[in-house]
Amino acid sequence: MQILHPILRLLRRPGVAASHHPMHRVSSTSRPALTFMASTPPCLSTPTLVRRVLPFILAPNPPVRCLSQQYVFLILMLTFAPLVRCYNFGSWIAAKDPGDVIPMELEKLAKGRHSDGSIYRASHSWKRYYKVADRNETGLPDPTDCVFYNGTCIRHIPTRLLQIFSLKLAELSGNLGSVELYGYVAVRDHMDPLLNYLVNISRNDPIIVKQGSLINMTGPKRGIDLYGTALVEYDMRCKTTCGDLQLIDGISAIDDLWGTWNRAFTKRIYGDCGSVDITVSRIDDAVQATIEVVISEVQSSFNLCLACFIGGYNDEEIRLFNGAIHESRGLKRSVVAAVDGSTMNLKLKVASESSSTDEHCCSFKADTHGFATEEIKTNFGLISVKVNWSTLLSS
Rank of each mutant, 00 (worst) to 15 (best):
S300N: 11
A337P: 00
D284F: 00
I254T: 05
V294R: 12
L306T: 09
N322K: 13
I251T: 08
T240V: 11
R222N: 09
E316M: 10
T241S: 13
A289P: 01
K221E: 10
Q246S: 14
F309M: 08
V280I: 14
A337W: 02
Q246L: 08
N262H: 10
T290Y: 04
I248E: 03
T279C: 10
D256T: 05
I248Y: 07
T343S: 11
D315C: 09
S252Q: 04
P220G: 07
Y234M: 09
C308D: 06
L320T: 05
W258K: 08
N303K: 11
I269E: 06
R282F: 00
K267V: 11
L320Y: 03
G223W: 00
S296N: 15
A307C: 03
K239T: 07
T260V: 10
G311A: 07
L346Q: 04
D235T: 11
D277I: 06
F265L: 09
R329E: 12
C305H: 10
L346F: 00
Y313I: 04
A338Y: 01
D277S: 11
K332A: 12
D255G: 04
A324Q: 13
L257Y: 02
I283T: 12
A337R: 02
L304C: 12
K267G: 10
A338D: 14
N303G: 14
V298Q: 12
Y270V: 11
M344Y: 01
K332W: 08
G223N: 06
C242M: 12
D249I: 10
F302Y: 12
T279S: 15
E316W: 02
L231H: 03
D315P: 00
F309S: 07
T260C: 07
G341A: 11
I254W: 01
G274R: 08
G312V: 03
D225H: 06
R237N: 13
D235K: 09
G330K: 12
V276F: 02
T229G: 03
D244M: 05
S334G: 03
V232G: 01
T240L: 09
I251R: 03
G274T: 15
F265Y: 13
A286C: 04
G330D: 13
I269N: 05
C273N: 15
R263V: 12
V339H: 06
I254K: 01
D225C: 05
R222C: 00
A286S: 09
D277Q: 14
T266C: 11
I318K: 10
V276M: 05
C242K: 14
K332Y: 10
D244T: 14
S281T: 15
R319K: 12
D225P: 00
S275W: 03
L306D: 09
D277F: 05
R268Q: 15
I325E: 05
D315W: 01
I291C: 04
K267E: 15
A337V: 03
M344C: 10
I310Y: 00
L247W: 02
D255R: 02
H326G: 12
V280Y: 11
L226E: 07
Q246F: 01
N314P: 00
I269V: 13
A324L: 06
T343Q: 13
E297M: 07
M344T: 15
V298F: 00
M236D: 02
S328E: 15
G274L: 06
W261T: 15
V276H: 02
Y227M: 03
E316S: 13
R329L: 06
Y234F: 05
F302V: 04
D340E: 13
